[in-house]
């Protein structure tokens, strides 16, 4: 079971969190013309990459904040975690 450093609460076990997918996906702006391809990329197409992955988790049984987690999908190593509004350098 992963051990995730919630930027708001500290180290907590994975069973307090729920997974939210790729954090690099940006929702197209509202009221903007979006091509089919762009929309498909946003809704469906994910890289499912092996290695370092920036992903969303929600601390659902804790502070309820959505956070960003930089994790290696192959080794499960977690490098860094960020608040929702923190820029990932």
């Amino acid at each position: 079971m992963l051990y995730i450093n919630c930027p708001h609460c500290g180290m907590r076990s994975q069973n307090e969190f729920s997974y939210g997918g790729d954090a690099s996906v940006k929702r197209p702006e509202l009221n903007k013309e979006v091509s089919d391809q762009e929309w498909d990329n946003f809704v469906y197409n994910r890289k499912s990459l092996r290695g370092k992955h920036l992903e969303l988790w929600q601390h659902i049984s804790g502070c309820r904040q959505w956070i960003k987690v930089e994790r290696d999908t192959a080794t499960h190593e977690i490098f860094r975690t960020f608040k929702a509004d923190e820029e990932v350098a």
């Binding site: 729920s18 939210g20 929702r27 969303l56 929600q58 659902i60 309820r64 904040q65 959505w66 929702a84 509004d85």
Partner: peptide, 13 residues
């Protein structure tokens, strides 16, 4: 609730 929190925290802060 999670859905609303997602949009408020990540998409339209």
């Amino acid at each position: 609730l999670s859905h609303l929190e997602y949009y408020l925290q990540l998409v339209w802060p």
